[in-house]
Design a binder for these strands. Structure first.
Length: 459
RNA sequence: GCCGCCGUAGCUCAGGUGGUAGAGCGGCGGGCUGUUAACCCGCAGGUCGUGGGUUCAAGUCCCACCGGCGGCGCCA
C-alpha cells in the first residue's frame, strides 16, 4: 500500500452524479452534501440513501467504524434531514447504481421534523398535488424536471444555432389572439386587460426587426377543460419566421423536433428509462415526418367509423385515433378555415382551407404543435377579422404590419408540457410541470405561489 | 358546460341485507452486522367530507351542498 499524499487524503467535494458516473476512482475520499431520502438498518450497518439534486446514492454507516453512539444517531435521523458525509467511494453490485459511499465522518446540517408526510408507499393524486412542494423531491418528478430542462435546452440551442433571436412580449394584453380560446380578465387600473394566450401576434411584429425569432413564455387559457392534457397556465415555445411558406415551416419543425428527440435520447436516456420511455423511441424520429392533409385525415377517420363532418376541427377522439396509427410525430395540414383562427392564410388554390399545420405526437398523445402560414395581405386580414366578428380597432397595430413591408411568413407554437408528456410517456399533463395550474384545484401552495396576475383576477 | 365514480386514522384502503370501527404503510419504543418501498415484536392514533331527513338505532338508507378522480366537449 502506497503512502497517501496530503491532497489524496483530503476529502474531495463531489456530487452524487460524479460518484455514479464512475469518474471518482474507487477508494478516493469524497465529501457529499444532500438530503436523506431513505434509511434502512440491520443491526450493525445503516444504509442512508442520499439525494443531492444530481442523483441518489447509497451511503453505508458501520457500527465498527463509527461506534454505537454515532450509529444510533444516524439510525434515528428523520427522513429529509440534511447531511454532509465524508467517506470513500466503492463499487458494489448490491448498491443501487453500482456505487456506494463508506462513511468515515458526518455532519448533520439540518434535522427534519419526524412526520414527513410522504410515505414509502402509493399515494393518490389528490394528496400528491396537495403536497406538491415536497413531491417534486421524488425520483419520478426529479426525472421529469431533468428531462424538461434538457428538452428546453435542446430547443434553445437548435434555435440559437439556426439564427433565431429570443425576444419577450407582454403577458398582460388588451385583446384576444386566438378566436375561440377564453381569456382570463385582469383589472388594469380600473380597465380590463387579459392574460396572454399567445405571443404570436407580437412575434409577427418582431420579424421585421430581428428576423427569425422565438419566445418561451407562459400562456393562459380560461377554458374549463376537464381533461388530462390541459393546464390553465402552460409554457408556450413560439417561433416566427419571415420569408417562409408552409412547406418551409414543415421542414423547420421536422428538424427542430428531430434535434430535440435525438438530444434527449442521447443526454437523458437514464431519466427516460426510469420513466418508462425507451430512448430508442426518440432516437428513431427522423425527418421528414409523415404529412397528412386534413381531407385525408377526415377520410381515414370516416373509414374507421368516427363521426366527423368536413369543416369541423379534429376532436380529441379524432386525434387519438390518428395518433395511434403512427409511432413517430406526424403533420395534419390544410385545415378548413372554419376550424382555425382568423390569421391563418387561405390556400390560394382552395380558399376554403388554410395553409395550416398541426404536429401530433404518436401513441395517442395528439397535438403538440399548432402553426401555419399567416395572412400577409391587408385587405384579406381585415376581411377575416370582420368575418370572425372581431373589432378591427383592437387589431390596428397588427393590421399596420400588413401596411409597412408585409411579407410571406409562418410560425408555430409548441405546448411544452404536451411535448414533455409525450417524451416522458406520462399519463397526465399535471406531471409535466412542477406546479400545475388546473381548473378545479386550488392547492395550499397556490396561495403563496400564486402569481400576481392571479391575485388580480381573483379580486 | 355535460356524463360517471369516489370521500372512514397522517397516507392507501376494508367495513354483504342498518346494531356507535379494522388492516397495511407512516410515527413512537424495542430487535436484527448488507439492506433494496428491508424485515420482525410492541404502542399510540378516528366528532367515518358538511348539513338535514328516515329509524329504537346510520360509516351503512334518502336529499342537498362541498371537495376529489375519470371520460366527453373546447384547445397547445
Amino acid at each position: 500500500m502506497g503512502t497517501l499524499t496530503r491532497s489524496e487524503d483530503r476529502a474531495l467535494p463531489a456530487s452524487i452524479s460524479d460518484v455514479l458516473s464512475g469518474s471518482v476512482p474507487e477508494g478516493r475520499k469524497v465529501r457529499i452534501r444532500g438530503w436523506l431520502s431513505n434509511r434502512r438498518s440491520s443491526g450493525g450497518v445503516v444504509f442512508l440513501i442520499m439525494r443531492d439534486g444530481t442523483g441518489w446514492l447509497q451511503c453505508v454507516a458501520r457500527r465498527d467504524v463509527l461506534g454505537d453512539k454515532k450509529l444510533d444517531e444516524l439510525e434515528k435521523l428523520p427522513i429529509e434531514s440534511v447531511l454532509e458525509l465524508e467517506g470513500s467511494v466503492r463499487a458494489d453490485k448490491r448498491a443501487p447504481g453500482g456505487y456506494e459511499l463508506s462513511i468515515d465522518r458526518y455532519r448533520i446540517l439540518s434535522v427534519a421534523w419526524p412526520d414527513y408526510p410522504i410515505a414509502k408507499k402509493y399515494h393518490g393524486p389528490d394528496f400528491l398535488l396537495e403536497k406538491r412542494h415536497l413531491w417534486i423531491r421524488s425520483k419520478k418528478m426529479w426525472c421529469i424536471l431533468i428531462v424538461r430542462s434538457k428538452l428546453l435546452k435542446a430547443a434553445r440551442s437548435w434555435l440559437d444555432e439556426h439564427g433565431y433571436v429570443e425576444v419577450q412580449a407582454p403577458i398582460l394584453t388588451a385583446s384576444a389572439c386566438e378566436g375561440g380560446a377564453t381569456l382570463f380578465p385582469v383589472d388594469y387600473f380600473g380597465r380590463k386587460a387579459y392574460l396572454t394566450q399567445s405571443w404570436q401576434l407580437y412575434g409577427e411584429a418582431f420579424i421585421a426587426s430581428v428576423g427569425k425569432c422565438y419566445t418561451l413564455a407562459p400562456s393562459f387559457r380560461a377554458e374549463k377543460s376537464r381533461t388530462r392534457r390541459h393546464l390553465t397556465e402552460y409554457w408556450h415555445l413560439e417561433v416566427e419566421i419571415p420569408f417562409c411558406d408552409l412547406k418551409c415551416l414543415l421542414k423547420v419543425i421536422d428538424e427542430f423536433i428531430t434535434h430535440i428527440c435525438h438530444e434527449l435520447a442521447d443526454k437523458a436516456a437514464e431519466e427516460l428509462r426510469t420513466l418508462g420511455r425507451d430512448p430508442a423511441d426518440l432516437a428513431r424520429v427522423e425527418p421528414p415526418f409523415p404529412r397528412l392533409k386534413y381531407d385525408e385525415a377526415v377520410e381515414m377517420l370516416q373509414a374507421e367509423g368516427v363521426q366527423i363532418e368536413w369543416g369541423e376541427d379534429l376532436t380529441w377522439t379524432c386525434e387519438k385515433v390518428l395518433a395511434s396509427e403512427f409511432d413517430v410525430p406526424f403533420f395534419v395540414t390544410h385545415f378548413p378555415k372554419t376550424a382555425k383562427a382568423f390569421y391563418h392564410k387561405p390556400d390560394p388554390e382552395r380558399p376554403e382551407v388554410t395553409l395550416s399545420a398541426d404536429l401530433l405526437a404518436p401513441e395517442g398523445y395528439g397535438e403538440i404543435i399548432g402553426g401555419g402560414e399567416r395572412i400577409d395581405d391587408y385587405e384579406t386580414l381585415l376581411a377575416r377579422i370582420r368575418e370572425e366578428g372581431l373589432d378591427p380597432a383592437d387589431y390596428e397595430w397588427y393590421l399596420d404590419l400588413r401596411k409597412y413591408g408585409s411579407i410571406q411568413h409562418s410560425g408555430f407554437g409548441l405546448g411544452v408540457e404536451r411535448m414533455v408528456m409525450w417524451v416522458c410517456k406520462l399519463d397526465h399533463i399535471r406531471d409535466a410541470i412542477a406546479f400545475p395550474r388546473l381548473v378545479r384545484r386550488r392547492s395550499s401552495w397556490s396561495t403563496t405561489m400564486m402569481p400576481m396576475a392571479y391575485a388580480l383576477v381573483r379580486s
